[in-house]
Simulated scan of single mutants.
Amino acid sequence: MLDDTERKLLRVLFNFFASRRRMPVWKELTAITYKTRAQLTQTLLSLESHQYIHWQDQSGSHTIVMIEGWERKDQPLPRRFAPTDTSYWTQY
């Protein structure tokens, strides 16, 4: 499960790429998130360790490759079952 800064940065990266078809450079990323380059680097390394992004050339933020743009759900969704009798349809 991601913490708040990781989740927000992941959404910023995804939305930036979806609207502009490229990853932001450091200047744009610091302007959008109001974080320093050191804070962003730490958060990006954490996202890479969780395998949400791939960041091979760490010289710039424009080399980030998105693997997933949203947080994974650790718990499966609850199963919904269909009633076996007609009471669902006949009783209100």
Rank of each mutant, 00 (worst) to 15 (best):
M1R: 04
M1H: 05
L2A: 03
D4N: 09
E6K: 03
E6W: 02
R7L: 15
K8S: 14
L9W: 00
L9F: 04
V12S: 02
V12H: 01
V12W: 00
F14S: 08
F16M: 02
F17S: 04
S19A: 11
S19N: 04
S19G: 01
R20N: 13
R20S: 12
R21Y: 12
R21H: 15
R21P: 05
R21F: 15
R22D: 00
P24L: 03
P24C: 03
V25P: 10
V25E: 13
V25W: 04
W26Q: 06
K27E: 14
E28H: 03
E28G: 03
T30H: 01
T30A: 02
T30I: 05
A31V: 00
A31M: 06
I32E: 02
K35N: 06
K35G: 04
K35E: 10
K35Q: 11
K35A: 09
T36M: 04
T36K: 02
T36R: 01
T36Q: 01
A38D: 06
A38S: 11
Q39K: 03
Q39H: 03
L40T: 01
T41V: 05
T41L: 08
T41H: 06
Q42W: 12
T43K: 04
T43G: 06
T43M: 08
L44N: 05
L44P: 01
L44H: 02
L44I: 09
S46I: 07
E48A: 08
S49I: 13
S49P: 04
Y52F: 15
W55A: 03
W55L: 06
W55T: 03
Q56G: 13
Q56V: 12
D57F: 11
Q58T: 09
Q58E: 09
S59Y: 12
G60E: 13
S61D: 04
S61W: 00
S61A: 03
S61R: 00
T63F: 13
T63C: 07
I64R: 01
V65E: 15
V65W: 07
M66I: 13
M66K: 00
I67E: 15
G69I: 07
G69Y: 06
W70C: 13
W70K: 05
W70D: 12
R72W: 02
R72S: 08
K73H: 06
K73Q: 07
K73R: 06
D74L: 12
Q75M: 13
Q75S: 14
P76K: 09
R79A: 11
R79S: 10
R80W: 09
A82C: 12
P83E: 11
T84M: 14
D85M: 06
T86G: 11
T86E: 14
S87Q: 11
S87P: 07
Y88K: 09
W89T: 08
T90M: 08
Q91S: 12
